[in-house]
Design a protein around this nucleic acid. Structure first.
Length: 325
DNA sequence: GAATTGTAGGGAAAAGCCCGGG
DNA sequence: GCCCGGGCTTTTCCCTACAATT
């Protein structure tokens, strides 16, 4: 693995001049605010306490986030600049937190994290995984790339580059959506695509009322009412209502695993299995028990856990009953 | 050793969207 | 230009098994 360089506060901010800020549309400005707030909260969680009000407040209040000449963050108030030395000290701490694990001289940290804190360092190997993930994530925000392609995940550092890049998507396609910039080879395709923005769904199921953009989608949907499964696996005879579901099933016979985790290389037969696996790297646990607050990475794990509470309830009820006797 | 938890394999159903052929 | 079918991708929910941990 390549060594990671230390990350400073300036590394994880994206700073705009007035001119650059003016080029962003509303959604891009919102994205910028969300990303900056997320970055700053990560740093605060690492003990990097400066600028809580000076930076977060404008972000939260939706103020214009640019400064004349220097940019929003470089142009901070003299109050902030006066805190330079204390700030540097805290920054050093934060930097040490998110440095590489083989750094042999890890300084003691000022802010101690709770045992649940997934980013706790303290030299523990298993905790670094999440710190590394954080660092990786922070690094994704270090480039000044406000020009974002709307057709692919690419972001570019200059308007002219973006214009060049756009041609990749529009080449040979004369009809462009004025809402998202996506290009189509014929205008009926564009009209159909525009329905995804307007919410128009002209094909309605007369049984359940569900509506669809395309007639073929309605036909597909109708199979769920008729129970018809025209796609049959030639190996085991199992039948499916959609060809793609059959293909998915066929991978269990072929062993094909086209979805690979870019972090550990493990491969999966389904996209959703990969997504689920990725949560083991990010530490994300979106399923929370409403009784004890414990979180789980998988819905089924939560349900299984909830069953243990049911066991408790039964035991409690039993002990109450015993008390009454 | 039992209970609990983390993780992954796989099934099933469904929807969104695009492409190409007629 | 339009309709239609096919195909790709993704999402959600579910059940289950196995290994690791408590």
């Amino acid at each position: 693995m390549q060594p990671l360089e230390s990350v400073t506060f300036e590394d994880v901010v994206v700073d705009f001049t007035k001119e650059e800020w003016a080029l962003l549309d509303i959604s891009q400005r919102k994205l910028f605010r969300d990303v900056m707030l997320e970055n700053i909260r990560h740093l605060l969680s690492l003990g990097y306490q400066h600028c809580k009000s000076d930076v977060i407040f404008p972000l939260e209040q939706g103020e214009e986030l640019w400064r004349e000449g220097t940019g929003f963050l470089q142009g901070q108030s003299p109050v902030i600049l006066g805190r330079e030395s204390a700030l540097k000290e805290q920054e050093l701490i934060a930097t040490q937190h998110i440095s590489r694990k083989d750094t042999s001289t890890v300084m003691p940290v000022q802010k101690s994290h709770t045992p649940e804190d997934p980013f706790e360092y303290n030299g523990l190997e298993e905790d670094f995984t999440h710190t590394f993930m954080l660092t990786q994530h922070l690094l994704t925000h270090t480039e000044k790339t406000p020009y974002i392609s709307q057709q692919c995940p690419k972001s570019l550092s200059d308007q002219s580059y973006l214009n060049q890049h756009k041609q990749i998507h529009t080449r040979g396609k004369s009809c462009e959506c004025h809402l998202c910039g996506k290009a189509f080879s014929n205008c009926s395709s564009l009209r159909r695509h525009e329905m995804t923005h307007t919410g128009e769904k002209p094909y309605e199921c007369h049984i359940c009322g569900n509506a669809f953009i395309q007639s073929s989608d309605l036909r597909k949907h109708n199979l769920t009412h008729t129970g018809e499964k025209p796609y049959e696996c030639h190996l085991c005879g199992k039948a499916f209502s959609q060809s793609s579901n059959l293909r998915q099933h066929e991978r269990t016979h072929t062993g094909e695993q086209p979805y690979e985790c870019h972090l550990c290389g493990k491969a999966f037969s389904k996209c959703s299995a990969l997504r689920r696996h990725e949560r083991t790297h990010t530490g994300e646990k979106p399923y929370e028990c409403h009784l004890c607050g414990k979180s789980f990475s998988q819905c089924s794990a939560l349900r299984r856990h909830e069953g243990t509470h049911n066991g408790e309830k039964i035991m409690n009820a039993f002990s109450k009953y015993s008390d009454l006797r």
